[in-house]
Design a protein around this nucleic acid. Structure first.
Lengths: 340, 340
DNA sequence: CGAAAAGACCAAAGCGCTTTGGAAGACTCT
DNA sequence: AGAGTCTTCCAAAGCGCTTTGGTCTTTTCG
């Protein structure tokens, strides 16, 4: 059933039927009713390929998926996707994932924009002076950055959490508890979120005349194994930290294992605070010693990004407003006063 | 730059240019060379919306993403996606995720097929007599099932791993080591993979005249917390198992925690084997006691599914061939002879 | 050498929608 | 009553590609 057939059986022109269905004003209300009714009864659904050729609108949100045999999409992505999908579903939006070589995503952004394959895109895991953000900005397609870049000479719309503030609070608490030697087990420090977190820790330490020692900061991909290695390295050195801030729950698993292997205890020998993106399958309160966290649902962020993208597509949102969400500091058993 | 303009500057018809570009035979080789050259030089790229309206081909693989506030996409998905994306990238395929109410995915399948939004779809986490598989089969769109359904009255193409065989081997090993009371901590037993695993364990036990006790099998969503709870429950009962087979590494984390909380040890008091889907961020060899596993890369499966979908789209593959991959049993420190 | 076959190209008709530029009739207003 | 304004609808022109059904040469071959 296509428009032509439908309009034939209604003895109306395609124009009128199309307008009736799309809510244009220049059509008699009774006619509209008839049309809508007939469309529903015959299960008419406009062909999206045709519509998209005619209008350029696709009803899709785009995302360039970095791939490569050495590239692992991290589990945060799926959580973000849950939120995004949840919103998208209720607004008849689909998601187009375009896999791209992780080292050359720009080509793919160019392609999907030039081809009008999507109405909007989002960018995640931005780095400082992120070229994707710059590119997408000049291409003129609606977009939202999940996270922030830095050092770009223009403003852009983003949704981020207050990583610096979160880790500032965490470190401040540890300092207040008497800790003098803090360490940070961070994610990849080429990404902005990691830089912000480190900045937060340093700022908190500086406020008490302390510094984050040269060997007291690690930046690694957020795996259990890397958490373990980093913790071993930190805890076996002569000026081992008495408290660690950790960028991920998964890394924290490794930290806990290292502490145990070394015959130490939490929080007796080491206080630990980790960032929790709120996974359904791994909860900080269930660690053998319940883990204190800086907590922010990445899933909610996904829903929010989808919401803003939808608003931008329909012209309800404009401009370069960035929003920064506060992060909760949740205290549990893994922190205590400094030993000794 | 569109086809019209390009053909104008070449003083050729659109027909000829189109044919030259798409490799049809009825065009002079020199003309073809000229056309291809000009197209490249002017950066001509056929508009996919137009092409798809004309041909019905979209260059996209579809997936219906179950969503809902109570639904958590599990982290396996992202690993599968890595493999799928990796293959798709090298074959110019994009992936269309259509979010749907988890309880009514059929409507969405119907929509994306009726609208010709994708060239093929895949289905994951199939249940017995899975309605999605039946639907997609009748809709006549190329598809591959990742996993298997059961009890359908037709054959269909799938790629699965030998879940039954894997857990059979695992249980057999444990029995050989003298264990008489085994338990199974399984995933959601409405899904086929879980049923197959249980079947494997039962078969191995039966071969030695043993049975999987009533209270010795748990079926739960695969979270750390559920692993913990299940293990507590199992180990605190009077006829506690001396060995556990576990369906996921994430659940195994919980099992290990429970064992520790109860003051028991692995493998002294309990032998443990878990299924490993091969995550980059959590490795069984790094558990405090290295974990024995049944191992199968879900990422490779993603790549394989993409490959088969591509073959089906281009007509290279037909029929209902199902393939079942063998699973490695990897022995590490977490298994030992039965205590006592 | 003439008919048939093959080679190289083109005009135009789709694909199924949206949107432009009217047009016909009904209404308002002076 | 005539001019202007709404209201309601339509024919036709896109959107940019593929594909059908030819045409006009050139080659092949009995």
């Amino acid at each position: 059933m296509n428009l032509k057939q439908l309009s034939h059986m209604l003895a109306l022109s395609q124009t009128t039927v199309s307008r009736a269905l799309n809510g244009y004003p220049e059509v008699n209300e009774e006619t509209r009713r008839r049309v809508i009714d007939a469309a529903k009864r015959h299960g008419y659904r406009p062909n999206p390929s045709a519509r998209r050729l005619a209008t350029g609108k696709t009803g899709m949100i785009g995302y360039v998926l970095p791939t490569g045999t050495a590239v692992d999409i991290d589990p945060h992505f799926v959580e973000f996707l849950s939120g995004l999908g949840d919103y998208a579903r209720s607004h008849e939006l689909d998601l187009a994932l375009s896999p791209a070589d992780a080292d050359d995503q720009e080509t793919t952004y160019r392609r999907i924009v030039a081809n009008r394959q999507v109405d909007a895109v989002y960018i995640s895991s931005p780095k400082p002076a992120d070229r994707r953000v710059a590119l997408v900005n000049t291409l003129g397609i609606p977009f939202i950055v999940h996270g922030r870049s830095e050092g770009l000479d223009f403003d852009y719309p983003f949704t981020d959490i207050d990583n610096e503030g979160a880790f500032h609070e965490a470190a401040r608490l540890l300092v207040q508890l008497g800790h003098r030697r803090l360490a940070l087990i961070n994610g990849d420090d080429r990404e902005t979120f990691a830089i912000h977190r480190e900045r937060g820790v340093r700022r908190a330490l500086a406020a008490s005349g302390l510094v984050l020692g040269e060997g007291h900061v690690c930046s690694l991909a957020m795996t259990e194994e890397n958490g373990y290695r980093a913790a071993r390295r930190l805890l076996e050195q002569s000026d081992a930290p008495t408290a660690i801030a950790c960028s991920s729950l998964i890394m924290a698993l490794g930290v806990v294992r290292a502490v145990r292997d070394l015959g130490l205890t939490i929080p007796g020998d080491l206080s630990l605070i980790a960032h929790d993106d709120v996974f359904a399958w791994l909860k900080p309160e269930n660690f053998s010693v319940p883990l204190s966290t800086t907590r922010s649902s990445i899933r909610l962020a996904g829903a929010r990004v989808a919401e803003r993208l939808a608003a931008r597509i329909s012209g309800l949102e404009e401009g370069a407003r960035g929003e920064v969400w506060p992060v909760d500091l949740v205290i549990r058993g893994s922190v205590a006063g400094a030993p000794g």
